[in-house]
Design a protein around this nucleic acid. Structure first.
Length: 279
DNA sequence: AATTGCTACAACCGCTTCTAA
DNA sequence: CTTAGAAGCGGTTGTAGCAAT
């Protein structure tokens, strides 16, 4: 009967300041662990599980509150592409961030992007976009911002997270590879021109490496010099005008126009089963 | 000013894994 | 070896705060 009454008294929902203080005081004295007895000892009508969660996700002194930084964003995307939804494992690589926070970040920001692109966040299609489009852009932004901060204000270059670009690339060689391949927009165009003559698109796709980026410029898209025609979501190369059926079908373009706004270096990303526009 | 919709995040739930008796 | 309780993990829900209408 007492047990039943006790269970009915168990509090749920948001923690009050008073509860937080009780929990912190008790942990200061007795340390972490033994959460059930700690909850009782602190005079909290909470489950040990609830106390642990509150401490781990909110009260711990080494928790970093506030927005996810660009560097952290890069790490999360890269590590998720490698490990999937292993939130606690990913969190271990981001000092001060909790698995809950990273999970929330993923759900609110990343899944939103997937939704906008009409694809499943766990699909290969979306993983490719993250890996070959989103990540390289982020890495570039991290570089740009760290360069700017080292030039302007060397003293603030060290952000609150202790991962600099070199550490990051050592930690994630695959991402370094993606960055190199994704952002240096050559010499693939020449390769394509060589390979393209007299072949069909299927054959081209079969020959071109999974990650291929072409840059150029035209009136609508200044970086697409080689691309002088754009109709119905299809890019045509000049030499394809006679047979427009061989154009690149860029369905992603229609679904994500926002990616093009202000996009500096457009390109085409080819992989095994789809062709993507790279902003 | 009121309402609605959206976002971010804290917290809960159910399940699995770990550990000590 | 078995088992019960604790701890850990990932999925999901609830809600406060804000912006748009």
């Amino acid at each position: 009967m007492d047990v039943v009454k006790e269970q009915m008294d168990i509090r749920k929902g948001p923690w009050t300041l008073e509860e937080d203080l009780k929990l912190m005081d008790c942990i200061t004295i007795h340390g972490e662990g033994q959460w059930s007895s700690l909850a009782r000892g602190a005079g909290l009508n909470r489950t040990g599980k609830s106390c642990r969660l509150r401490w781990m996700n909110y009260l711990r002194p080494d928790i970093r509150h506030g927005n996810i930084t660009l560097k952290e964003e890069v790490l999360i995307l890269e590590l998720h592409s490698r490990w999937g939804n292993r939130w606690s494992k990913i969190a271990q690589q981001l000092p001060g961030r909790t698995d809950n926070e990273i999970k929330n970040y993923w759900r609110t920001r990343v899944q939103k992007q997937a939704k906008q692109l009409n694809c499943d966040a766990n699909s290969k299609q979306f993983r490719d976009i993250v890996r070959y489009v989103w990540l390289p852009r982020l890495v570039d932004r991290v570089r740009a911002s760290s360069e700017a901060s080292t030039t302007a204000q060397p003293s603030t270059a060290a952000t609150s997270i202790s991962i600099d670009q070199n550490n990051y690339e050592t930690l994630i060689p695959e991402c370094q590879q993606v960055h190199k391949t994704g952002l240096q927009l050559q010499p693939i165009e020449e390769d394509i021109q060589t390979q393209i003559s007299g072949t069909g698109l299927d054959q081209i796709q079969a020959q071109i490496s999974p990650l291929s980026v072409v840059s150029g410029g035209n009136d609508a898209f200044p970086d697409y010099s080689w691309c002088n025609n754009f109709e119905d979501g299809v890019f045509y190369r000049p030499e394809w005008e006679a047979s427009p059926s061989q154009g690149f079908d860029v369905q992603a373009l229609e679904r994500s126009n926002d990616w093009l706004i202000g996009g500096a270096s457009l390109g085409i990303l080819l992989n095994d089963d789809s062709i993507w526009l790279q902003p």
